[in-house]
Computed example of a mutant assay.
Amino acid sequence: MTQSSSYTASFTLDKAHYSECYTQSSTLSHDKKTYFKANVLTVFGLIILLATPVNPYAAWFVIALGLLETISVYYHKPWWVIRQMLSKASHSEVKLTIDEQGILTESFHINNRILWADVTRVTETDLGFLIYFSLGKTAMGKDIASKSYISKSCLSDDATAFIGQKNPTVA
């Protein structure tokens, strides 16, 4: 006999939540490779400025683009969090339901269900779970994938164990 399990939780989309989501799900690292494009733009602008007879305004524009790219990489997290805080969903209450069908997220602004059949991987982080799932296929047959983050702070121990059991990558 199988037992039907359903877990309900709620949380608020506030700055702390968004910051945790970014910290736990971001793959951006601050290394030389991340700043490569910014460095190339800056060096290219300096070469245009110092070694060619091109209008200096064009060179300064390319240098400014390189510096702007550097700043955008360096401040990626605060910029992402601010954009989320400016969204209409910010500060709203979200009801999370986890059951045998999947994960249902409901709020005033969105109702979204991720079916367990669409989940390709569940990764446990220090503070929550990353749920990777398929959104279907493109016209060319390529998979469209996405990920979602669920914080453990709003989940009970039973709900945490239930999500851990639903990981399709575990045999």
Rank of each mutant, 00 (worst) to 15 (best):
A161K: 13
A38W: 09
V94K: 10
L130H: 03
W60M: 09
A159G: 12
A51L: 14
E69H: 01
W80L: 08
A58Q: 00
Q165L: 15
Y74K: 05
N39Q: 08
C21L: 12
L13D: 09
S87A: 15
Y18C: 04
K32H: 13
I63C: 03
L49Q: 04
H91W: 08
L104K: 13
R121Q: 03
E124R: 01
T52M: 05
L115M: 08
F129W: 01
A58G: 00
K33C: 04
M85R: 03
T97P: 05
T138R: 03
Y18H: 05
A59E: 06
L28A: 12
I110R: 07
A159N: 09
T27D: 12
A161R: 14
H91Q: 12
H30I: 12
I48S: 03
K77H: 06
F44T: 10
D126A: 04
V170E: 14
L49G: 04
V73E: 09
T125W: 01
P168C: 09
N39A: 13
Y132Q: 07
L46C: 10
F129D: 00
A38N: 11
V40N: 10
A171S: 14
I47P: 05
L104Y: 13
S151F: 14
N112W: 04
S6G: 05
D158A: 15
W116Y: 01
V122L: 03
L46K: 05
S87L: 14
K142M: 07
A117Q: 06
S4W: 06
K152P: 02
A9E: 08
Q165N: 15
A51G: 09
K15Y: 10
A58N: 00
G45F: 07
G66I: 05
Y132I: 06
L65N: 02
L115E: 07
K15R: 12
V43E: 13
D143Q: 14
W116S: 00
P78F: 06
L96M: 10
V94A: 14
S26K: 02
E100R: 10
M140Y: 06
I131E: 01
T125L: 03
A161Y: 13
S19Y: 03
L115C: 07
A9V: 08
V54F: 09
K152N: 07
A51H: 07
T52C: 05
A139T: 02
H109D: 10
V43H: 12
